[in-house]
Simulated scan of single mutants.
Amino acid sequence: MPLRTPTHGGKHSPRANDETGASARTRILNAAEQLFAAQGFDGTPTSHIARDAGVPKGLLFYYFPAKFALLTALLEERLQGTEIDSGALAVPGDPASGLVMIAERYCAEQARSTMLRVVLWREQHTHAEVAAALASYLHDLEQSIEQLLSLSVSSAVDQRFLQAASRLWAGYLRTLPLPGAATGGQRSAMELRLAADLVCSGMNSGQ
């Protein structure tokens, strides 16, 4: 259930149109996201979140009655907007080019979001809600890839081959290093294209 900003009065109760209050809530979430990424959820005291957000601890608990409410809010709010517009990326007759563009978009999203890059993967084994959010994210990714492929192929392909190709490409994306990572850097455009061509070659055997 989405968290709602309380409306009751109190020492730290911001007015509905108080931009300072909205800014404080955002700073709290920003601090929580960065600290959860750096120290883990269990290793981050709420006092450190309040300190880094520059707010009294009481104001943090006004917005988020428990630390887990911060993680829930991050999952609900910071994972939005990561959907891939398959229609905009599809290249009719050239599904491999679409796969390359999805790879580029995926890496850009991962690089921008510590929720996707660190928190989601780290906490999936300790919190069921995070595992569910990750599973949903990966499912949506596979669905986006499958939709792109179906819009790109020049002739009908067996649905089973489309789904297999989508799962294969989604799995490949998870192996890609992020920009600036100390694991060998980004894949070259040629390597991405070769991998995409290989996936599409297998998919086309289902025509």
Rank of each mutant, 00 (worst) to 15 (best):
Y62T: 05
S152A: 09
G180H: 06
L134W: 11
I49S: 00
L168H: 11
Y172S: 00
L75V: 09
R25F: 09
H139W: 15
G185M: 03
S201G: 14
D94L: 04
R4K: 13
L194R: 00
A170Q: 07
G10L: 08
A131T: 02
L35I: 06
G171W: 04
Q39R: 15
G10N: 07
A111I: 02
T7A: 13
L59H: 11
K11T: 15
G185S: 02
H8F: 15
Q110V: 07
A88T: 09
A195K: 03
R160S: 15
L116T: 02
G184C: 01
L151M: 13
P14D: 05
A73P: 05
D94V: 10
A22G: 01
T126L: 12
S97G: 12
V55P: 02
L70P: 07
E77P: 04
Q147C: 11
M115Q: 03
P45K: 07
V199K: 04
D42F: 11
G171S: 05
L178N: 10
A164W: 12
K11E: 15
A32N: 02
L178I: 08
G43S: 03
T72G: 08
A133R: 04
V100H: 03
L192I: 01
L173C: 07
L134Y: 11
E19F: 10
E191G: 01
A156L: 08
S97N: 11
